[in-house]
Design a protein around this nucleic acid. Sequence first.
DNA 1: ATATAAGCGAGACGGTACGTCTTGTCTTGTC
DNA 2: GACAAGACAAGACGTACCGTCTCGCTTATAT
Lengths: 200, 200, 200, 200
Amino acid sequence: MTSESRQPPARRGAVRSEAARQAILQATAEQFATRGYEHMSIEGIASAAGVGKQTIYRWWPTKGALVTECLLEGRLLPDQLTLPDTGDVRADLRTWIDRILTLLDDPTGQGLWTSLIAAASDNVEIGRKLHDSLGVASSVTQRLAAGVEAGQLAAGTPLTETSEALIGAVIVRALGRIPARPGDADRLLAVVLGPEQSAG
Amino acid sequence: MTSESRQPPARRGAVRSEAARQAILQATAEQFATRGYEHMSIEGIASAAGVGKQTIYRWWPTKGALVTECLLEGRLLPDQLTLPDTGDVRADLRTWIDRILTLLDDPTGQGLWTSLIAAASDNVEIGRKLHDSLGVASSVTQRLAAGVEAGQLAAGTPLTETSEALIGAVIVRALGRIPARPGDADRLLAVVLGPEQSAG
Amino acid sequence: MTSESRQPPARRGAVRSEAARQAILQATAEQFATRGYEHMSIEGIASAAGVGKQTIYRWWPTKGALVTECLLEGRLLPDQLTLPDTGDVRADLRTWIDRILTLLDDPTGQGLWTSLIAAASDNVEIGRKLHDSLGVASSVTQRLAAGVEAGQLAAGTPLTETSEALIGAVIVRALGRIPARPGDADRLLAVVLGPEQSAG
Amino acid sequence: MTSESRQPPARRGAVRSEAARQAILQATAEQFATRGYEHMSIEGIASAAGVGKQTIYRWWPTKGALVTECLLEGRLLPDQLTLPDTGDVRADLRTWIDRILTLLDDPTGQGLWTSLIAAASDNVEIGRKLHDSLGVASSVTQRLAAGVEAGQLAAGTPLTETSEALIGAVIVRALGRIPARPGDADRLLAVVLGPEQSAG
DNA sequence: ATATAAGCGAGACGGTACGTCTTGTCTTGTC
DNA sequence: GACAAGACAAGACGTACCGTCTCGCTTATAT
């Protein structure tokens, strides 16, 4: 007996329109970047997407859910924000943090971050997502674990706390709209991972 | 002839009402705690303060400015959030972080933090204030400097980055609504200040 | 194939709510009578009608338009203000003018008239309507024409000017809040239609 | 003993500023002509007159009172609106009505009249003034009386009603924004004063 | 084939809040 | 004590969105 054999009565009626879904997510990402999480409107998204409001409300309960889905689909954050992997954990983290801090100097990038943070504070789901996936759980923590294993980082380093401190520092700077200065990434890594072991 | 002798034409008209100002800030702080930054309304504040809307708009251009002033007057954050000072920097920081993390377990405290973060992302001023005064510039950094001087912390510790990492970690946890677990503060301090020098 | 077969694209979306329209006109008429044209508020009407303000603004551009529609639907003026028709033009006009002048002694009736006049001076549409339909074009002028034809009035009487003089006299008295005295209607008719042809 | 000898307790303090009074009345007349009775604001008058609002409220209870005083001082109506006096009552009235009807073709003149009417319907005082002084009591009625005495008008003409009908007809046309046509004044006079006695 | 049902675009609805404007009163300091 | 300036509580203005609810159409099974 396969799992497909006992099917539900197979609902009638039109099926969800993928075109509408795409248009909505697209418009959401644009409004998010343009107006920011707080100041974007469902009505604006609907109209920009050429879609009835109800089509949004049918599938997403809140603005937060809409943004979450955009976030999960990678429509909100530029590709350059993924942690690179060259084998050298410390160098990769430095590159990554540098990119983020540089992004913060540009008003658009700044708006993106602050909007993301606003979304996270308004919406538990997004907050959780940010904590879990933007770095803490996945990429960053994994690379840290790999770094410990490879002997590049001190054994016994508390991974979660290290990730939190790194991401957190970046967020604090985003909120403060602090412009990047040379060496920022280095200093931050020195604080969080300990001073660099140079030559012996 | 003193510099006071040449006074400006001495403006006429009624002077700003301190009573109204107090009532407004009071009501703002309450609404901030109750409904959160995003969902509090100027109209609600005016009505709660027994004040005309115009009296608010006359003195504060935006909701953000209103909240900033509350923040500066210490109406938003409970007293227990000031960094204690027993002489032992590390112990003081542990106590302080513990208190914050504990506060985050309570929905009210959580709302307070997330609202503050939302305010900071919406409003440059608040963001800067948060970065400068909630800890980075003043109390935390000063204590860190004192700690370095007293030999309790490693010489050459980058103070700003250390503060940012500490506060940032807390903010990340606030956004993720992560419940506090025993030892959190210790682990965080181990990461940021380096492992504790026990016995010898 | 008739000309109706090629219809316009048949607009979609919910249709205008007749219930809301009725409630709004009803509330408007009440506020008009109670508070007068100048001192009635859209907000008050909306709230009395149990309707969102936008529903009013969606369909009527101004307070004046709202009142005009009430006027056209006969919601503003009591029924007794229609010109009676017994066959004797002069007697009918006397009855009619008497009724109006009497109405003006009562504060409510006075407010009704002055409000109507205020509305007419504020709003071209209403002014035109008042001139055309309250009497000049329709009932009064028609009865005058009939009177001329029946030989009850002098041939060559300028109908428009006669109507205007009659209505105008009433309006002037309304504006002056002049109390009615016996014989007023008679004297006015004597002036405008000429002295009554008694006996012969 | 002169009438000045028994003075009241002789109030102290500054005396009413005639300059302020003039500036206020001037500004009122301008706003009345420009924006109309309903849409002019005390605040606007105060600011245009370079005067504190309180100075207005100190001396006039309402907007209506302010306008009344302007009316009485002849600041609202142009000079050409005084009834001429050549000895021939009928000709004088024709000239006068012609002027008024012509004035109504110009938007400014129209606004003036409709504003005046609006003021009269809002404000009993103004209404009475309009009824009494714009024509009924003073100039028009007096000339009519003179005309009767001189045998130019039929004896027994009810003066008040005749005035009311004349002024009223003009007001009705103002409210209807009816453009003037040649012969209007003649026809109106024919209706109200009876047909012209030509050659007979 | 034909009912039946869901999705869709459009958009009206009852509301809440916005930020502005005006009202009439009160207060301050000058003349 | 009148005045210019201007703050104040109150509240209406007209606009923008909210989230819900009809409409009339277009798909898709299910009979």
